[in-house]
Design a binder for these strands. Sequence first.
DNA 1: TATTTTAGTTTATAATATAAACTTGTTTAT
DNA 2: ATAAACAAGTTTATATTATAAACTAAAATA
Lengths: 96, 96
Amino acid sequence: MFPKLDPILHSELRLAVISILADVDGAEFSYIKKQTGATSGNLSVQIDKLSAAGYISVEKGFKGKMPCTTCKITPAGIEAFENYVAALKEYISTEK
Amino acid sequence: MFPKLDPILHSELRLAVISILADVDGAEFSYIKKQTGATSGNLSVQIDKLSAAGYISVEKGFKGKMPCTTCKITPAGIEAFENYVAALKEYISTEK
DNA sequence: TATTTTAGTTTATAATATAAACTTGTTTAT
DNA sequence: ATAAACAAGTTTATATTATAAACTAAAATA
């Protein structure tokens, strides 16, 4: 009846990150940080988890001389997000 | 941009409990347990938290001779659930 | 009357989220 | 040129949370 909620996505910050990445072609660490209001440390950890799950890809490069990390959602991430949303709806739809 | 998700409700089991209670006039512990598939211990703890938050009321009585705990969502619980759902939608709606 | 079952609670452990402290390098001010 | 402040993160420690295992008490059953 109640489907399992993907624990990787059932996290406020990780969900916000995926939500952002679902809408754009790629986003920089600092942009995501600003949009979410997260601390650097927290964001760094959560990005690692999303990356370890294969839901996002992370590319480290430079913007001028400054290091710059860019994140992008993967097909697996898109699918996971869709599944999570579908599962959530089972919980939050006021049916019957 | 991303609203805060009520941590009381942003929990798989507590959300399932509230989701059940939102649809009925009241439900017994054992019914909720069956519907959610939770262990008794986990359910007991989560029901306590929902109750402590004022989101549900818990009435202890008897059904015949057997103890029977009945849970009911409160107006505060309904409101919190509605707010949670509204907040969630900011995360999961694929807009833009 | 002993055993199993019902209906939970308490407590211990495992997992998670979060922030504080740290690293590395860059810009800016002196 | 060098020190101070800033940028972009990472690592590590701590606090919180979720979860299950162990326990309690009474009732039904063999």
